[in-house]
Simulated scan of single mutants.
Amino acid sequence: MFGTLLEETEVKVPASKAWALYGTLELEKAMIGKLVEAVEVVEGDGGTGTILNFTLKPGSRFSCYREKFTKVDNENKVKEIEVLEGGFLDFGFTFYRCRIEIKENPNDDTGSSCLVTLTTEYDVKEEAADNASLVTNKPLVSITSIGNEYLLKSG
């Protein structure tokens, strides 16, 4: 069973500034203490192939997971991240990917704002199809909220 969730938000910073956060390891660093307890860089420097271990805060649905940046496209401002171990994969999911895309805001002629789109795609085994209900927009909303707050505070 395949599913997709999408969350889009406007940020009052230029797309290049938003990409400097979302397209690098800075977003994961900004989440420490808010959404996650710790982030460990296992391999890489934030580009394609980077592998991270996440330890979540107590009370989270799962305690840890490992993810890999499968695409970091600086030209088009697109980053794709797939869970390699733990997390949703422990609940019968065979695939779990988050895609971050930064675009110029078509309604802003000044270039002082952009659109941040986070998309989650997942596939869950038929025998675990009920677990698809575990996937919600809440983490996407939290990530964009943390990111937007960081961008606005950093001027």
Rank of each mutant, 00 (worst) to 15 (best):
G3V: 01
G3I: 01
L6C: 06
L6Y: 04
E8D: 12
T9W: 01
E10H: 12
V11I: 14
V11T: 10
V13N: 01
V13L: 05
K17Q: 11
K17P: 00
K17S: 08
W19V: 00
A20P: 08
A20Y: 09
A20H: 11
Y22W: 13
Y22Q: 02
Y22H: 11
G23D: 06
G23S: 10
E26F: 13
L27M: 15
E28V: 09
K29I: 10
K29F: 05
M31I: 03
I32N: 05
I32S: 00
G33D: 09
K34N: 06
K34H: 14
L35Y: 10
V36W: 02
E37Q: 15
A38L: 08
A38K: 06
V39C: 10
V41P: 02
V42D: 12
V42N: 03
G44I: 07
D45W: 10
T48M: 14
G49F: 02
G49V: 11
G49H: 13
I51G: 13
L52K: 06
N53L: 05
T55F: 12
T55M: 05
L56N: 07
L56C: 14
P58W: 07
P58E: 15
S60Q: 10
R61A: 15
F62Y: 12
S63Q: 11
C64W: 08
Y65K: 03
R66L: 12
R66Y: 06
K71T: 15
V72W: 04
V72M: 10
N74C: 04
E75F: 04
N76F: 08
V78F: 04
V78H: 13
V78S: 04
V78C: 10
K79N: 12
K79S: 05
E80S: 05
E80L: 09
I81T: 14
V83I: 15
L84D: 08
E85L: 07
G87R: 01
G87M: 06
L89K: 11
L89Y: 05
D90A: 13
D90H: 03
G92C: 11
F93C: 06
F93P: 05
T94I: 01
R97C: 05
C98H: 13
R99W: 02
I100P: 00
K103A: 01
E104F: 05
E104R: 08
N105M: 04
N107A: 13
N107Y: 13
N107M: 04
D108S: 07
T110Y: 13
T110F: 14
T110V: 10
S112W: 10
S113Y: 12
C114F: 07
C114A: 14
V116W: 07
V116Q: 01
V116T: 04
T117V: 08
T117E: 11
L118I: 13
L118C: 09
T119D: 04
Y122Q: 02
D123I: 03
K125W: 08
E126Y: 08
A128L: 11
A129R: 15
D130C: 15
D130Y: 13
N131A: 10
N131F: 02
A132M: 06
V135T: 01
V135E: 00
T136M: 11
K138G: 08
P139H: 05
L140R: 00
V141R: 09
V141D: 06
T144Q: 14
I146G: 06
I146V: 15
I146D: 02
G147E: 00
N148A: 06
Y150L: 02
Y150D: 12
L152A: 14
G155C: 11
G155T: 13
